[in-house]
Design a protein around this nucleic acid. Structure first.
Length: 483
RNA sequence: GUCCCCAUCGUCUAGUCUGGCUUAGGACGCCGGCCUUUCAAGCCGGUAACACGGGUUCAAAUCCCGUUGGGGACGCCA
């Protein structure tokens, strides 16, 4: 059995996007599940569009997602001598030839062919010119086979056949000496002994052009697995038009990497009815047999649901670790974190039932992180009324005198007030909630009080009482009345 | 236009290879209910699909052909 060696080979012309992450994930899963090697290779042979920032963004995205690589990152621009050597070998063995057609000429001919409805391919006019040492800018072209068929068995799509007649002689070395994609991939996949080429199915058409190059170079042909594309809601290829497609943008929007990865693994792959997969399960269960052949539409709603699920079921420590940088980014610091008995971690259980993203935690945590709050006007007017003041007062007094600040004790006090004042819990809970958080929506009031601590709990109730009394004064009433 | 690939609820999908077990299952979303201290979460129920037309067969979502529709590729980009 040959070693499993796979690679993820992004071109650093932009950020790492959702589709790229999924391709990387499937490669990684395949390698990890078969004791294989996962190689990272940066395809930066396009000098004009490749950037260092993009490389960093790709590495950062993969790392965030938890996809670690065993070899690399290799950079093709550091391997140029290898491609040139291979190209010269091809020239000398008669598999390649110099072409002096200018890019402008080629472009013009392409347009003409397109307009006439003729096949758009290089006409091979330099093929028999036998140029040995060009004295003008020249590109090296590969002699593609002209007859027969090129057939390969795709692990996902099955047997795919192309007539060699549709192939033209592709350029393998640009006139600037840089290799082109179709050539450098083959050389690297061959040299790196890649056993399985797992990539997006936008590369299906490149495969019959690459296979003859493997053969001409004298290397074995790897297995191919072409993943279907990810589409946007309008069924066109996922792009910026569909909103956020950058992996790092999802991190910044408060998504957990395990949620994104789980969502992505189910986009095109399945294992019966199972939706939730641990890292280990994915590794063990992933196979090409259950990879879909048709493209899949990216569904942000399901991703959100998945994220909410992970938020609710993950270890609070884990969630807290991911949340902290977002809180800091929002302007909070250690001083704020220290206000909460139990720190950031204590926020997780109460808030996670109400959060779909970590950003929801950021806004939900505000009342507990700050020393004081601003009351929501509408909520305060509605619930902090003179009628509830006596009960609030009674509650605050008893709380102050209470021997402990446990949930049981809080519950006991609340119920004693309820009973004496003949109130239903909801009648007291909502005013308390508004006084304590400034809002109508929050975790349970006992949890809220625990997050606030005794001092802030009492202070906020007193402020709530003050508000209710201010509103009760005749002047205020007139002022705020809308008739 | 040429070439390649694909086709189950709105979306992700099970089932298709190895036809009958399917009144086509699950998930997201949506709708309703329960629970309830607000909002959620959770639980229960509902909504909704085999693109179409021909074959083959006792029997087809499952096999074959065609049509239609969709995606991808046609660069000295990757």
């Amino acid at each position: 059995m040959t070693d499993i060696r796979v690679r993820f080979a992004p071109s650093p012309t932009g950020y790492l996007h959702i589709g790229g992450l999924r391709t990387a994930l499937f490669n990684w899963l395949f390698a990890r599940g078969r004791h294989g090697t996962f190689i990272l290779r940066i395809e930066d042979t396009d000098r004009d569009r490749s950037t260092e920032e993009a490389i960093q963004a790709i590495l950062e995205g993969l790392t965030w997602a938890g996809l670690d690589w065993d070899e690399g990152p290799y950079r093709q621009t550091e391997r140029l001598a290898l491609y040139r050597q291979a190209a010269m070998d091809l020239l000398h063995s008669g598999h390649a030839y110099w072409c002096i057609c200018s890019p402008e000429d080629l472009e013009a001919r392409r347009k003409e062919a397109q307009a006439k409805g003729e096949p758009v391919k290089y006409d091979g006019r330099c093929r028999n010119r036998g140029i040995l040492s060009p004295d003008q800018p020249a590109a090296l072209r590969f002699k593609s086979p002209q007859e027969g068929q090129i057939i390969f068995d795709d692990l996902i799509k099955g047997t795919i056949a192309f007539d060699s007649a549709v192939l033209d002689d592709l350029i393998i070395l640009r006139s600037n000496g840089y290799p082109t994609y179709n050539f450098s991939v083959v050389v690297d996949d061959a040299l790196m002994r890649i056993s399985h080429v797992i990539r997006g199915d936008d590369h299906v058409n490149n495969t019959p052009r690459q296979i003859p190059i493997f053969q001409a170079l004298g290397y074995p042909i790897p297995q191919f697995a072409h993943l279907p594309m990810i589409l946007g809601a309008d069924k066109t290829r996922l792009s910026k038009r569909h909103g956020a497609t950058s992996v790092l943008a999802y991190r910044d929007m408060g998504y957990m990497p395990e949620a994104l990865v789980n969502y992505l693994v189910r986009l095109g792959w399945s294992h019966g009815d199972q939706e939730i997969f641990s890292r280990q399960e994915m590794i063990e269960l992933f196979d090409f047999k259950h990879v879909q052949k048709a493209p899949a539409v990216f569904n942000p709603d399901k991703l959100r649901w998945m994220n909410a699920h992970y938020l609710r079921t993950s270890d609070p420590k884990r969630v807290a670790a991911l949340l902290e940088p977002l809180l800091r980014k929002a302007g909070y610091d250690d001083h704020d974190f220290a206000r909460i008995p139990g720190g950031i971690e204590a926020l997780i259980p109460p808030l996670r039932e109400r959060s779909e993203t970590l950003l929801d935690f950021v806004s939900g945590a505000e009342p507990y992180l700050r020393e004081t709050i601003t009351l929501d006007e509408t909520a305060a007017r509605k619930y902090l009324t003179p009628a509830i003041v006596p009960s609030l007062k009674k509650f605050a007094e008893r709380l102050e005198a209470a021997p402990a600040f446990t949930k049981e004790e809080l519950e006991r006090i609340v119920h004693s007030v309820l009973e004496e004042d003949g109130l239903k819990l909801s009648k007291l809970a909502q005013p308390l909630r508004v006084a304590l958080t400034g809002r109508t929506v929050s975790p349970g009031i006992y949890e809220v009080m625990q997050l606030l601590g005794k001092r802030r709990t009492i202070e906020r109730i007193r402020r709530g009482i003050a508000f209710a009394q201010t509103v009760a004064s005749p002047g205020q009433r007139t002022e705020t009345s809308d008739g």
